[in-house]
Design a binder for these strands. Structure first.
Lengths: 217, 217
DNA sequence: CATTGTGAACGGATTCACAGCC
DNA sequence: GGCTGTGAATCCGTTCACAATG
């Protein structure tokens, strides 16, 4: 019995859930209230089988012969991701990127709340975003432990990143969206997703030069 | 013979090349001029075998019994990625995110040059970045075709993204780093990498709630 | 009879294991 | 002896094919 219960959901599946959620939101806005895996496939570009398999990781949400109830499926996915309850996040590093990301998130999603931003540079301690305070790093433990924040977005320079991460982990952060171009060392229970813009851009450049020596050949 | 020459490099490999490059740069700065796959493994977190396999896609760059010459390997990877020659890129959508990304890139890399930014909103047509002009979208064809730009960073709102992409492709763009939260339709010769911050954040939230109903079980 | 849910087959990437070479 | 380069074995996610079912 333990064998079965140890099934871990692949990361690839978790990455697709938010896509489904977005499509379902769009469909609901258009009053589409039954949806087949085939239509979801058209909207997302994933295969219908893959979508059904993805959903099957979490339960049987559909009706054979009919499809999925849009609203019901949406509720289920919200719940699976954890968006059925408010999530507090912090932004560490309030330079241009941190600033842009804060705005981006604030505006996107009612379930997600940026509760504070942090920066070491006194020049950056001012926020032009309504309801957002920017604090020096010393205040981080108080805010994170006090409000039980679990999620952090990290946009500090590479050479400060590890020190900041240690501080985050110490204070109970369990998931980090890392924009600093460096490998972070964390305990295995902490989840780190790296979004490295330099890497993305450089792989893009690789692909931009089609039919060059290495590519086709 | 055709069978052999059709070998395509896996995307996963291409994504790791810039990581190697960064490590090699760091090592060179510390005057380390011979490097083994084992040490590269320690620095990157990838296995030594994987690193050797990755490099082997492009040739045999090492010396058995010794390792790789740091500077030589760096040159090779630069060349493979296409960073041995100047690359021109444009940023389309000059809101907070576009702005931050432009700064980010300008500052990172001598081989990569943001030649212009574009936005539809007259309010955003001013740049505070040295040497960078922000133009209305009508000017895009002239700049892109004229300067033979192949790479674009896209940070426009989701509902404008497809129209802008069509314009980009029409004018010769072959690689797009897309931050708009929507599926883009492009001819198969165009490479699109999606960086969807909402998706990243939502998967992060999934992982932040460890030992919840769906996760371990 | 359309569509879900799922075991089985497949394929691509990683890891293993070792032969080749300095 | 140490480290690269690589075929073989393995792992894991995707696709296939179909049984189950409203």
């Amino acid at each position: 019995m333990k064998e079965l219960s140890r099934r871990k959901t692949p990361k690839t599946v978790v990455k697709r859930l938010p896509v489904y959620l977005r499509i379902l939101d769009n469909l609901l806005r258009r009053d589409v209230d039954i949806i087949s895996s085939r239509v979801l496939s058209d909207e997302t570009g994933f295969t219908a089988e893959q979508i059904r398999k993805d959903l099957a990781y979490f339960g049987a949400f559909g009706t054979r012969g009919t499809g999925y109830n849009t609203g019901y499926l949406r509720e289920k996915i919200l719940r699976i991701i954890g968006l059925d309850k408010q999530t507090k996040i912090i932004v560490v590093g309030f330079g241009h990127l941190g600033h842009a990301l804060t705005r981006y998130n604030v505006y996107q999603n009612p379930y997600v709340e940026v509760v504070a931003a942090f920066d070491n540079d006194p020049a950056k301690l001012h926020s032009d975003i309504e309801g957002l305070e920017v604090y020096p790093l010393e205040k981080l433990p108080e805010v994170v432990s006090g409000q039980k924040v679990k999620v952090a977005i990290l946009t500090v320079p590479a050479d400060e990143a590890q020190k900041v991460v240690d501080l985050l982990v110490e204070n109970g952060i369990t998931a980090i969206l890392n924009f600093a171009p460096t490998k972070l060392h964390v305990p295995e229970y902490v989840y780190v997703h790296n979004t490295d813009l330099t890497i993305e851009l450089q792989s893009l450049i690789y692909y931009s030069q089609e039919d060059e020596k290495y590519h086709q050949q």
